[in-house]
Write a protein that binds this DNA or RNA. Structure first.
Lengths: 140, 140
DNA sequence: GTAGAACCTGGAGCGCGCTCCAGGTCAAGC
DNA sequence: GCTTGACCTGGAGCGCGCTCCAGGTTCTAC
């Protein structure tokens, strides 16, 4: 019933911060910062107060990274994390957030495609220009 | 021979900073900042030292915005602007920069599409989940 | 049991891309 | 010619998302 796809296997909190940093590409500092910022719910600890992450933490971090990489600011992720912490009652709100974020992403992707086409045009322009220059110089 | 498409009409420097701000969406401060940073070559001035932009300035600004909006940092734009200032001899270098930038843009767009698909999956998951919840509550 | 690496905390600092401010000059309308 | 709003400059400040630091604790290997 609980998830567990495509990841290590242990549902137990066994990953050190260094291992999670390695897997997510985040730095130790960023992981601690995200936790302090409330993006990650309090991570498990050893008796000696060192963090031990589990597979679910890793999945959640990967999701956060998806939000981040699609342009959601930390404040947005905090809002989402707070909703998530409230459990199933917040599913509708989370869905609304995701839909809105998805729509903004679509807008930005459209804009990028427009700009990419314009860049392509400029590149082609320069390619032609260079061909001419080179041709001219060769005949000199 | 000099350009002049799709824009006002006057090749003369007649646009005040306010007008350029309006057309580009940049603030007055940002326009001055870009000039100070060397992104825009010294803009024309009135005898009273006030800026007057011409159509070419506007085209260049629009191009800069395209670079910015596709993720090029200021330092990159500065490099490009310096090349441009050297004239035709730098066409090959500018082309190389544009190609590299275009390739990075393609990478980022690919990553965005991947992330967008993952978000869609999550959204659909929540939609199904919500349907179930709602259904359950209705029968209560 | 001890060395050395990994980890902890709170808080300061940084790079980026602007944005704001103070204190002045200029221009357009009356 | 005067007012008022737009503009000027140099430089300080800001919000974001980390990143670094000091000073201490814990873990691992020997």
């Amino acid at each position: 019933m609980t998830s567990g796809q495509s990841l290590p296997q242990d549902p137990e909190p066994t990953l050190t911060i260094a291992e999670v940093a390695e897997r997510t590409g985040l730095s130790h500092d960023t992981l601690r910062y995200y936790e302090k910022a409330g993006l990650i719910e309090r991570v498990g600890r050893t008796t000696g107060n060192q963090r031990r992450y589990d597979a679910a933490d890793l999945l959640w971090l990967e999701f956060l990274l998806r939000l981040r990489d699609t342009g959601m600011p930390i404040a947005g992720m905090q809002r989402y994390a707070r909703l998530r912490a409230r459990g199933d009652v917040s599913v509708a709100d989370r869905l609304a957030m995701l839909r809105e974020h998805r729509a903004e992403l679509a807008d930005r992707m459209r804009a990028l495609r427009r700009n990419a086409r314009a860049l392509d045009a400029k590149i082609h322009h320069y390619e032609r220009l260079l061909d001419e220059q080179t041709g001219t110089e060769e005949t000199t």
